[in-house]
Design a protein around this nucleic acid. Structure first.
Lengths: 200, 200
DNA sequence: TAGATTGTTAATCGATTAACAATC
DNA sequence: TAGATTGTTAATCGATTAACAATC
């Protein structure tokens, strides 16, 4: 029996917990209860308790969890200690928004640069020519590729990433990418997400 | 018994189906089978068939669904006929990326403009001063508010939207917004999403 | 002790998949 | 008829919630 498998649903809540815990850091909180976390984040109380039981050490009845220890445990699961390097392909508005967004560092991810085929977008600091991709990936230990190009070039870009040994892909294009089975694709179809909201 | 309730999971696939169907439009396809759709989108065959059974008219054994009719039915469910107006609060990189992204129209959503408190970002065409929000909402039938400000101002901005009668909110800030129960919030924590991918 | 909290087992709920009958 | 597909019922799976015992 494998005790190490953490369900996907739980995984997705780890960053939420971490963000909440880090927001407490200047309040000098020593203990935090699952009840409190559940209320603040509007999650079920038992849900949070089960998550914490799975992810962390024991809590103390009537008191809760030692906050710093809990934070450490969650970070260990997320493995935020060693930074994961990511690159963006497609330096349009969205690509740049992600490139300059600072919230990723908190979770141990560094978006090192973006690539684009359009010469006008090259800025030598952060946006490089797509032709330099191969060398860059080899030299910089890139683990994640973020696709923010249009749907027409998305598959092509995806192939390029895969051929450079990148097997984690965050796909913002609205198409279904074809990849070898060992490659992990997370689709982020923003328009579709908004459409669902609009119709509720 | 209410036959009209469509499960959330099904709802979320409608935009995916629609996007796929529209990609066929210049190929003169008359009939499309659930099997084909499932293979192309890498979904379970039975899943697609159940979705279509729920969302559309009858398909024909051995042939499939009349493509245009299916598309129409899906669009009806999404109600893409009358355009829903949305605004963005926070004209940073991400706000602008969404503002100028054209993919929303396909699903019947129009992001009409963005608001920002920073005078340097005002461009009179698409980005207005936050102080003009009240009048704008009244005059332009705004249904959706998109929050792309930092986490410190997110709750405040949210309150402003709610007080202007907006009850659908797409929240890109990493905090849990407090809203009255009739307000629908969809959280989009990009950093958290990427963190989950990075750790697989 | 009483009460707040943890932690666990069983029940429920929702979504997906499997199996199979019906149809053209 | 055979075969591809639809459509439906039952089984499975995963996640959440309810109920309750244990602990400080």
């Amino acid at each position: 029996m494998n005790r190490n498998v953490i369900p996907k649903s739980v995984m997705e809540r780890i960053p939420i917990y971490l963000h909440y815990l880090s927001s407490l850091s200047n309040e000098n909180v020593e203990y935090i209860s699952a009840t409190k976390i559940a209320n603040e984040l509007k999650l079920g109380e038992v849900l949070v308790r089960k998550d914490l039981a799975l992810l962390s050490g024991k809590g103390k009845p009537k008191i809760g969890y030692e906050k710093n220890e809990l934070e450490l445990h969650l970070k260990n699961v997320l493995d935020t200690s060693n930074v994961t390097n990511a690159i963006i392909i497609g330096a349009g508005k969205l690509g740049q928004a992600l490139l300059y967004y600072e919230g990723f560092e908190e979770y141990g991810i560094r978006i090192t640069c973006a690539f684009d085929s359009d010469h006008n977008k090259i800025d030598y600091q952060k946006i490089y020519n797509i032709n330099d991709l191969d060398d860059y990936c080899i030299d910089n230990n890139i683990k994640i590729g973020i696709i923010t190009v249009g749907e027409k070039s998305a598959q092509e870009v995806c192939n390029l990433l895969v051929s450079n040994g990148i097997n984690k892909i965050w796909n913002f294009s609205p198409i279904q990418l074809s990849v070898p089975s060992y490659v992990n694709v997370k689709n982020e179809n923003l328009a579709a997400g908004l459409a669902v909201l609009s119709m509720k």
